[in-house]
Computed example of a mutant assay.
Amino acid sequence: MALVYLRELDNDTRFAIWKIEETAEELLNRLQLDEQEKSVLERFSKGKRTLHWLASRVLLRCLLKTDGFISCPSDENGKPYLPNYPYQISFTHSYDYAGLIMSQRGPCGIDLEIVKDKVLRIQEKFMKPNELAFIQNNNVEQLYACWCAKEAVYKLQGNKGVSFLENMTILPFQYKPQGVMTLILRKDSIEKSFQVYYEKFQDYMLGYVVD
């Protein structure tokens, strides 16, 4: 496994992206799993999903600088957490990469997506008309920045009942290869604003946020 990106956002928050070059067996040999984790792993079909899960757990051990067992269960909404460490975490993966953000400041979220034109076919499923109005000339990269922002906030808040289309609104922003946007989350009677950072990473788009 090769570290391709490591960034310290502040004294309390950092994220990393790794390129997956090992086999599932090689990754598994670097882990210590409890029975619950072994059960989760057995439910996956062989292939990328298994590699993504294993690589993200190896990456977690690398950032925490330990070869020992790390308890990393998921709550009732599927959000991973660390009962024995003072960090909140979020995983992401796409094709040959796995990513992780961890923070002592509060809940966090991260998303990595390979950039493809297919996003043009689904843009109206996750973007409101007033959001699409500020997209510059069907800019595929800008659309992916918006998708990654919404996915990162979705992971941060950890509630399965939140909709990209209905509950999240991105305020107009001028797209650059690296930047920040404001996302408003409205759910029931709660309204909250997030500053979500995005950047182009090779052929991918990356979005991340910390509460």
Rank of each mutant, 00 (worst) to 15 (best):
L120E: 10
D10Q: 09
S71M: 06
K128H: 08
Y175M: 05
Y95F: 06
R121I: 04
I20W: 01
K19S: 11
A145K: 10
G109V: 06
L64V: 05
Y154L: 01
N167F: 05
L100V: 10
F126D: 10
I122K: 00
N138L: 07
A98N: 06
C146Y: 04
H52L: 01
S39A: 12
I70K: 07
N159M: 08
Y85C: 05
Y204G: 06
I20E: 06
Y97Q: 02
T182S: 13
F44I: 09
T169N: 10
R121F: 07
T50R: 14
L183H: 07
S74P: 01
Q88D: 13
T13S: 15
I122Q: 02
K160D: 07
I20R: 00
I122H: 02
E37Q: 14
Q123V: 03
P129Y: 09
E151V: 04
T50I: 14
Q123T: 05
W53T: 12
V196L: 01
I89S: 04
E22A: 10
L132G: 09
V153Q: 02
C108V: 15
Q123D: 06
N130L: 08
L28D: 11
V119R: 03
F164N: 09
T169S: 11
D211Y: 01
Q136P: 00
I135P: 09
I89L: 02
F201I: 13
Q123E: 11
N167E: 06
R43F: 03
S56I: 08
M205A: 08
L156A: 11
T13E: 09
Y154I: 03
Y95G: 00
P80W: 07
E151N: 02
N84Y: 13
E191T: 15
N138S: 13
K192Q: 15
F126P: 12
Q88P: 00
K176H: 15
L59G: 06
E37G: 04
S45N: 15
M205N: 08
E113H: 06
K200L: 12
N139K: 01
F164A: 09
Q32R: 05
K128Q: 15
L63C: 00
W18A: 11
S103I: 04
K48Y: 12
N139Q: 07
G158D: 07
K200M: 07
A16C: 13
W18M: 11
P73N: 03
Y154W: 07
Q142M: 14
E151G: 02
N130D: 15
V119N: 03
N139Y: 02
K118Y: 12
S163T: 10
K38A: 00
S71I: 06
T92M: 00
C72S: 13
I170V: 15
R43T: 14
M205P: 10
Q174E: 15
Q104V: 01
W147I: 10
N11H: 13
Q202G: 03
V210G: 02
D75A: 06
T23I: 10
I110P: 09
M181A: 15
K128A: 14
Q36W: 03
N130A: 11
L3E: 15
V4G: 02
P107H: 00
K116L: 12
S189G: 02
K125T: 12
Y208V: 08
S163D: 13
A133K: 12
E124P: 03
L3K: 11
C62M: 03
